[in-house]
Design a protein around this nucleic acid. Sequence first.
DNA 1: TATTGAAGTAGTAATGATTACTACTTAGAG
DNA 2: CTCTAAGTAGTAATCATTACTACTTCAATA
Lengths: 127, 127
Amino acid sequence: MKYSYQREEILKVVKASSGHISALEVYDEVKKTIPNISLGTVYRNLNSLVEHNYITKINMPSGSDIFDYTLGKHSHTHCIKCNEIFDLSSELNEEIKALVETNMNFVITKPVVFEGICHKCRDKKEG
Amino acid sequence: MKYSYQREEILKVVKASSGHISALEVYDEVKKTIPNISLGTVYRNLNSLVEHNYITKINMPSGSDIFDYTLGKHSHTHCIKCNEIFDLSSELNEEIKALVETNMNFVITKPVVFEGICHKCRDKKEG
DNA sequence: TATTGAAGTAGTAATGATTACTACTTAGAG
DNA sequence: CTCTAAGTAGTAATCATTACTACTTCAATA
């Protein structure tokens, strides 16, 4: 991979984010330092960073994909109220994987996104 | 809901499918009996059938949504080799739900799609 | 049974996320 | 320095889906 200032800034932004950021959010953020950067450049570089294992792409069931700086494949939960994304521990991930494998005879190869309500939002409603 | 011939034929096609069919596939199939049906009509009716709980919509992580005639909310596995979709038993579904709830303090509210390799495709490769 | 209006339809345009294309630019090996 | 493969900006295209518009039809009621 040839060095590019654009890619460097894109990676910086993904790192600086809490770990979960969309292509458009990266674009808006990088524009602050490189005002004329192209959205295509952001997508191309995010995807090549994924290919080279610098970051991970998460396919959200609804809405746009998000990019994750946390190393290692892991699944997520996505709160449909506050829109926050949380990481599953690798232990929990393995436990679910094993359950599906033994019960369904099916090998999960990609991280999953569980959609629902996080504890903060549930407490808000009940409180 | 006012009766419509188009909606009736659309529901027939979803029923007749093995349970998992995309909007475009429904469109192609219904065109055989209603050649000038509009794709918009297919989408609108599929969505209103979902709203009235005749069928279920499954948000696929990648690619187009699919519609499911099987009653009752349930999660799925999706084989990325043969593209087949399998239903999770409600027991397995509840087990996973409980796991995520106790470990993450997160309530799953939507069915999930696990992506990976089904036993048929795995056997093919290993055999 | 004729009237009527809300719900439905076909066809087309628009949207949102993403990728592809094109002519220009730049990193960095030789 | 030179040269070329890789990268870039900007724009057009794609794919899945929804919105819009003028026309049609179901079905309640006069």
